[in-house]
Design a protein around this nucleic acid. Structure first.
Lengths: 229, 229
DNA sequence: TCAACACTTCGATTATAGTTGAAGTGTGGA
DNA sequence: TCCACACTTCAACTATAATCGAAGTGTTGA
């Protein structure tokens, strides 16, 4: 029954510690080199290269050559979505060290989910925007209200451009740490890009944790009422 | 980075040919014994037993003891949904033998998807019901119209009972062979149960293919306008 | 009580696949 | 031209895990 063999083949690519590590490292949506990924996964570059070639072959990862570097990225958003949903299913990690505990906390506070914000920050901002009447939650996506249209325009996010992109506009993305939905799609991405532009957040170099700047703290409070306790 | 280790652990259970075979065999939603599953996967009972204990440990499968038999079933509907979505992602199988080709055709024509109908039959019936105005497709589920309420009541499906069950009522389930949605949830299950009651369909013993009886052919044409070319 | 049966456990074998050192290719900069 | 660097390929090693025969447990039915 080789119907199953196909599933096994695809899935077995995910079911190995080193490859899973590489893939979750790639979940920040940015490009990474083989050596970087090797370091993050705690393996030698040859080993990473071996795994990466398998992942490229299996269409989970795509590569782009530039000079003597090869930059790797998740093949598409479906892969990222699959990974996030698997993280949601998987049991929470056991904490073994202080460093690990701190890293986990950073990720829970604010991180990128492929190309938009997740963690407490991502979920919190989304909820604030719903409370303020800018967004309305539908079954699997968020709808931007008239009020929200105005707000986003004022904030410097061009909805017309975002809507033209050939991808979902505002899908509700499941969050593995908060067990809530947050704003994904091109709108989620557009907002994050704007936050980066404004210098409200900065991306950590090796991890997909996100750092909130002092300007950001004021801005999030003023414009989004976050945090709102 | 043991965040990844958890994912890898869960996923690696799926990424092995024998286990994938066992799991897809269990996708008919029925209970199966270890020996049955071993036969279907082409391995010895000891090996199946070994894998099954791992699957039970990993909460993908649950077991129930009855006399000298132990009956195995998928742990929950989430697991079934995960498997179907993986089948949808996986490339279509290569055909190697006539027998396999026939089996694949049977599965594509009409099969069970956990506990409701899929394949051409499942997709076709769903589309007919939408055309007839009994169902309306929403983002991720189907809504039963007033007309549909009446139709289903007449047909002998008790919606009140189904709605009380602690599970989704009518979610849209992705079909790996047809690449379309079909009707799942308790309503999808309720309909299939009714078809079995009426003797319109019978379940094949070893495969999750479904056989349409002569009565069924007439019934589906008369009540559901299927097939409708 | 006994034999047949369903399943599991154990131990040995075998196959598979991840890992790494060494060597090779190609690019960039001095 | 030469060296440093990023990456890949190759070959050997090693660890892991799937498989199956043999033996053991517990259940059913005669």
């Amino acid at each position: 029954m080789s119907i199953n063999a196909n599933v096994a083949q695809v899935v077995s690519l995910l079911g190995e510690a080193s490859r899973a590590s590489i893939l979750t490292s790639l979940m920040d949506g940015r490009f990474h080199t083989a050596t970087e990924l090797a370091y993050m996964a705690g393996i030698k570059p040859q080993t990473a290269s071996f795994h990466l070639s398998k992942l490229v072959e299996g269409n989970l990862v795509k590569a782009e050559k530039q000079g003597r570097h090869r930059y790797f990225q998740l093949a598409n958003m479906e892969v990222a979505a699959l990974l996030e949903s698997l993280l949601a299913i998987s049991p929470p990690p056991e904490i073994r060290s202080l460093k690990q505990s701190n890293q986990l906390k950073l990720l829970q506070d604010a991180r990128t989910c492929y190309d938009h914000l997740a963690g407490k920050l991502g979920v919190g901002l989304t909820e604030s925007m719903v409370s303020a009447g800018y967004l309305e939650k539908e079954e699997k996506e968020f709808r931007v209200t008239l009020l929200g249209n105005q707000f986003l325009a004022d904030f410097g996010v061009d909805l017309d451009v975002l809507k033209k992109k050939r991808r979902s506009f505002s899908h509700a993305c499941i969050d593995w740490s908060e067990r809530h939905h947050h704003l994904g799609g091109s709108l989620g991405n557009g907002l994050m890009v704007r936050f980066l532009e404004l210098g409200w957040i900065t991306q950590a170099p090796a991890i997909r944790a996100v750092n909130i700047t002092e300007t950001g703290k004021k801005g999030f409070k003023q414009f989004f009422d976050y945090p709102n306790e």
